[in-house]
Simulated scan of single mutants.
Amino acid sequence: MQMVLDRSEPIFVAGHRGLVGSAICRALESAGYTNLITRTSKELDLRDQAAVRDFFRAEKPRHVVCAAAKVGGIVANNDYPGTFIHDNLAIQTNVIESCRETGVEKLIYLGSTCIYPKHAPQPIREEHLLTGPLEPTNEAYAVAKIAGLMMCRAYAKQYGLKSVTLMATNLYGPGDNFDLEKSHVIPALMRKAHEAKLAAAETMTIWGSGTPLREFLHVDDMAGAARFCLQNDVPYDMVNVGSGAELSIADLASLIRDVVGFQGELVFDKTKPDGTPRKLADSSRLRGLGWKPEIALRDGLAETYEWFLAARDARLSV
Results as ranks from 00 to 15, higher is better:
residue 56 F to W: 09
residue 253 A to N: 04
residue 155 Y to F: 14
residue 304 T to D: 06
residue 146 I to W: 03
residue 206 I to T: 00
residue 174 P to K: 04
residue 226 A to T: 12
residue 39 R to A: 13
residue 151 M to F: 13
residue 99 C to G: 11
residue 184 H to E: 06
residue 300 G to V: 13
residue 102 T to W: 07
residue 280 L to P: 03
residue 59 E to Q: 15
residue 63 H to L: 14
residue 288 G to T: 05
residue 119 H to Q: 13
residue 113 T to P: 00
residue 10 P to R: 05
residue 216 F to L: 12
residue 29 E to A: 12
residue 211 T to Q: 15
residue 285 R to V: 02
residue 318 V to K: 15
residue 141 Y to W: 07
residue 49 Q to L: 03
residue 281 A to Y: 06
residue 217 L to H: 03
residue 146 I to N: 02
residue 125 R to T: 13
residue 276 T to W: 00
residue 85 I to H: 04
residue 308 F to E: 00
residue 303 E to Y: 08
residue 30 S to P: 01
residue 317 S to Y: 11
residue 244 G to V: 01
residue 47 R to M: 12
residue 245 A to H: 13
residue 29 E to D: 09
residue 201 A to R: 11
residue 35 N to M: 04
residue 62 R to C: 09
residue 276 T to H: 00
residue 127 E to T: 13
residue 148 G to P: 08
residue 257 R to N: 05
residue 20 V to P: 02
residue 49 Q to V: 10
residue 33 Y to D: 02
residue 246 E to Y: 07
residue 36 L to Q: 06
residue 205 T to H: 11
residue 281 A to N: 02
residue 28 L to R: 06
residue 43 E to L: 11
residue 111 G to Q: 10
residue 38 T to P: 02
residue 74 I to T: 08
residue 65 V to C: 12
residue 107 L to S: 06
residue 225 A to T: 04
residue 240 N to V: 05
residue 206 I to R: 01
residue 176 D to V: 00
residue 121 P to V: 09
residue 182 K to G: 05
residue 245 A to E: 14
residue 66 C to W: 08
residue 18 G to E: 10
residue 288 G to C: 07
residue 20 V to L: 15
residue 14 A to Q: 05
residue 40 T to H: 11
residue 196 A to S: 14
residue 13 V to R: 07
residue 167 M to H: 15
residue 272 K to L: 14
residue 274 D to Q: 05
residue 184 H to W: 02
residue 74 I to F: 02
residue 70 K to R: 14
residue 122 Q to D: 07
residue 155 Y to H: 13
residue 226 A to G: 03
residue 150 M to E: 15
residue 180 L to Y: 00
residue 160 G to Y: 11
residue 74 I to D: 03
residue 70 K to L: 12
residue 27 A to R: 14
residue 14 A to D: 00
residue 166 L to W: 08
residue 170 N to C: 09
residue 231 Q to D: 15
residue 227 R to C: 08
residue 18 G to F: 04
residue 316 L to C: 12
residue 151 M to Q: 14
residue 175 G to I: 06
residue 141 Y to C: 05
residue 284 S to D: 08
residue 48 D to Y: 07
residue 197 K to T: 01
residue 244 G to Y: 07
residue 26 R to L: 11
residue 174 P to R: 03
residue 41 S to V: 10
residue 318 V to T: 14
residue 261 G to A: 08
residue 268 F to D: 03
residue 301 L to Y: 06
residue 261 G to S: 12
residue 269 D to I: 09
residue 234 V to H: 07
residue 46 L to T: 04
residue 70 K to C: 10
residue 36 L to F: 04
residue 250 A to G: 06
residue 89 L to G: 01
residue 216 F to G: 05
residue 32 G to R: 13
residue 2 Q to S: 13
residue 240 N to R: 03
residue 30 S to E: 14
residue 30 S to C: 08
residue 286 L to G: 08
residue 252 L to H: 01
residue 253 A to D: 00
residue 171 L to N: 05
residue 160 G to H: 06
residue 79 D to V: 13
residue 11 I to N: 06
residue 153 R to A: 09
residue 65 V to I: 15
residue 230 L to I: 06
residue 40 T to W: 10
residue 244 G to K: 06
residue 109 Y to R: 05
residue 293 P to M: 04
residue 210 G to H: 11
